[in-house]
Design a protein around this nucleic acid. Structure first.
Length: 256
DNA sequence: ATGCCGGGTCCTACCCGA
């Protein structure tokens, strides 16, 4: 079973990239982030033609997540349980397929909106850990994957690319990410590649891609029984070198 | 310690991302 996640930075700009990549990679499930459109504008028909069913949680201009799956699935949540009911940001979708729960997430960046913006990011991470704890307690095999906007370790950002005060690397962000691991989740890419850079994002500016100044912020976390089935996990760097790329690349995980 | 690029929208100057 192949599961992938990709922050596409606008599905309208990346509709054909995603179609080509689906044909090439043949994942069973692809999670998308930053679709940047409302659900009705998501190009589901394009992917239906390739054998995928689509479900999108969107809003105008910002954020937005989606699931594409070859197997039938049911949608369990369109918002992260535990957030205030008036929270209008489209950042979470949770589905069940093939006996497992899959959550696609787009975590707040946390650098805008001052301390309130950063506080929103930390609260979001806390609600996510609570959701993970609930699923762990229920013994459900599950995956949480997407753009976490956190560089978990010192190898996860190129030296000099971010100040230590950046919300992606602040200790408060990293501690809350680490809690997910302490609670029993496995960082799939780090389980396969324990050391060194395994970037998933390169800024459009200042030749970041050409100089390989990247970040590892897109993650796939596995519950214990799924971690035992892990056979491969890696970003698909080639996508970053294509014409008009997203600034993120897909991260692909294979389970036996 | 950033917004040089690239996306969005109140269509065009500004907001936002990492």
């Amino acid at each position: 079973m192949k599961i992938a996640t990709w922050n596409v930075n606008s599905i309208r700009q990346r509709e054909k990239h995603v179609a080509r990549w689906l044909e090439q990679c043949q994942p069973d499930v692809l999670l998308l982030q930053e679709i940047k459109c409302e659900a009705h504008a998501f190009p589901g028909l394009t992917y239906h033609g390739l054998g995928y069913t689509a479900e999108a949680v969107g809003q105008k201009a910002y954020n937005g997540v989606a699931v594409l799956s070859r197997k039938p699935f049911t949608v369990h949540h369109r918002t992260l349980p535990g957030l205030p009911p008036d929270d209008a940001q489209s950042r979470y979708i949770e589905v069940e397929t093939d006996g497992m729960v899959i959550a696609g997430i787009y975590l707040p960046n946390g650098n805008s909106g001052g301390e309130a913006g950063f506080g929103y990011k930390l609260a979001w991470l806390e609600r996510l850990a609570e959701r993970a704890d609930t699923l762990l307690a229920s013994d459900t095999p599950f995956i949480m994957a997407g753009d976490f906007n956190v560089c978990p370790g010192d190898d996860d950002w190129a030296p000099g690319t971010l100040p230590p005060t950046d919300a992606l690397v602040r200790p408060e962000s990293r501690a809350r990410f680490r809690r997910l691991l302490w609670d029993g989740m496995t960082d799939a890419v780090r389980a396969v590649h324990p050391h060194g850079p395994v970037y998933t994002f390169w800024d459009y500016q200042a030749g970041a891609w050409q100089r390989d100044l990247g970040l590892r912020i897109d993650h796939v976390l596995l519950s214990p029984t799924l971690a035992e089935r892990l056979v491969a996990a890696a970003p698909d760097r080639e996508e970053r070198g294509k014409p008009q790329p997203s600034d993120h690349v897909p991260v692909v995980v294979e389970l036996h």
